[in-house]
Design a protein around this nucleic acid. Structure first.
Length: 188
DNA sequence: TTTGTGATGCACT
DNA sequence: GTGCATCACAAAA
């Protein structure tokens, strides 16, 4: 994968990230759930233009956008075209599992990285990662060999633009944060 | 199984 | 001052 991958709209990137492996300092796993955010819809942080918090969303593609959620958790996004980004919502743990369990203080593998806040806690993501390139340490990102089967649905935890089908998941994965309601099985 | 709520920080209005 | 792109646990049903 290269920079070009992120130089697109977030919906395409979010779909194509399913099945990719994300590691941070040697710990991580397969991305099984993402959400797309675009600058022209009100659920996005970028909807009202550039602010101090969302500045990196308007910077170059292929960088990490990290923000604090509900005062407690961190959330990790991948920046795409200006003002658009993909929220990484869940991983299937693969590497550094013991380390992630320690950071989480939780050993259930189904809850280790299943949710944007949990994922950041498990990988040790903080505001210090905000603005870093995804193509340099501590990040390591690898696309899957074959296109996985993908399901779509409505985004979670938002109050605006709730009908957009911009949530993507790996079909059949038990590591997603919440079940997809539809029948699923949308072709890649 | 679903619903409620406390913990907690800060950007934005 | 308001409202979150949340989580975990408790309680109701």
């Amino acid at each position: 994968m290269d920079q070009q991958f992120f130089d697109r709209g977030s919906v395409d990137v979010a779909r194509d990230l399913i099945g990719a492996e994300l590691d941070v300092s040697g710990a991580g796993g397969v991305i099984v759930e993402t959400e797309a955010y675009e600058p022209d819809e009100p659920a996005s942080h970028s909807f009202r233009g550039v602010t101090q918090r969302n500045a990196v969303m308007f910077g170059p593609p292929g960088h990490a956008y990290v923000y604090r959620s509900y005062g407690i958790h961190w959330c990790l996004n991948f920046v795409c075209r200006p003002g658009s980004a993909v929220l990484i919502r869940a991983l299937q743990p693969v590497r550094g599992i013991e380390e992630m369990e320690t950071r989480r203080g939780f050993s259930d593998p189904l809850l280790l990285c299943s949710g944007p806040g949990r994922l950041c806690q498990a990988l040790g993501i903080t505001i210090e990662h905000n603005g870093l390139s995804l193509f340099a340490p501590p990040f390591e990102l690898t696309l899957p060999d074959a296109s996985p089967l993908i399901v779509t649905g409505r985004r979670i935890g938002i109050s605006q633009a709730v009908d957009l089908p911009w949530r993507f998941g790996l079909s059949g994965s038990l590591h997603i944060s919440k079940k997809f309601s539809g029948k699923g099985g949308l072709a890649p």
